[in-house]
């Protein structure tokens, strides 16, 4: 465990908590893509199956439980909360997630470290996480709605990606024989898509800023 990874995990967890708190505080999820949140929940469940039979550390176990519970909390709020569920842009959030899930399953079956159930599911979760933000990106490009996606949520997402890349560089230079091509390649793709998301976030923020400026 190095400081980059620890900080990366903390900012990743904080980004989910910040989004959850924002939804709870404003009782609204306007602009948030439920499909992306559901894809994240699938990523965490398919990645953390080893929660039940391999113990790596207390930190590892606690963080996995946190990620799974917090992502399901967001989904619960967006689907079932009396007030929040009415603010969900159902008509706009129409990305066909099958176009993401099916190719990730095939790719995980073809390219993996080991052809076992847990390993293929873990690899699937790595591939899926790299494209999971696409429904959110499409929704943002359609609505430019950044009411709930606060800037600290976006900043924390960016910090999570940047710190994880630093973590991989650090491990590459300090651990002999460390190489994770699957994680590195999908993590790079994920970071590229996040940069596109950040770009559209700034565009949306400026657009709203112009609209709200006193004429």
């Amino acid at each position: 465990m190095n400081i980059f990874r620890f900080a990366g995990d903390m900012t990743h967890l904080c980004s989910i908590v910040v989004l959850l708190l924002k939804i709870e505080a404003t009782k609204s999820c306007a602009g948030v893509s439920l499909r992306t949140q559901e894809l994240y929940a699938v990523v965490f469940v398919s990645r953390y199956l080893d929660l039940f039979f391999t113990f790596i550390s207390v930190y590892n176990t606690v963080m996995k439980v946190f990620f799974i519970t917090s992502s399901f909390c967001i989904i619960w709020y967006m689907r079932h909360h009396r007030i929040v569920s009415q603010t969900y842009d159902r008509e706009q959030d129409t990305f066909r997630v099958a176009f993401l899930v099916v190719p990730c399953i095939f790719l995980a079956l073809l390219v993996n470290h080991e052809f076992s159930m847990v390993e293929v599911l873990w690899t699937f979760s790595i591939y899926l996480e790299s494209v999971a933000i696409l429904p959110q990106l499409i929704l943002l490009q359609r609505t430019f709605n950044v009411d709930t996606l606060t800037s600290n949520y976006v900043f924390l997402l960016g910090a999570y990606r940047a710190l994880y890349i630093l973590n991989w560089l650090y491990r590459y230079f300090t651990e002999p024989g460390y190489s994770q091509w699957i994680v590195w390649s999908s993590g790079t793709l994920q970071t590229a898509i996040y940069c596109d998301f950040f770009y559209y976030y700034v565009v949306s923020w400026r657009k709203n800023e112009r609209l709200s400026l006193p004429s």
Partner: peptide, 10 residues
């Protein structure tokens, strides 16, 4: 050496 199938990262 590093074993890619050890899942120590989240």
């Amino acid at each position: 050496a590093f074993d890619p199938t050890t899942k120590d990262e989240l």
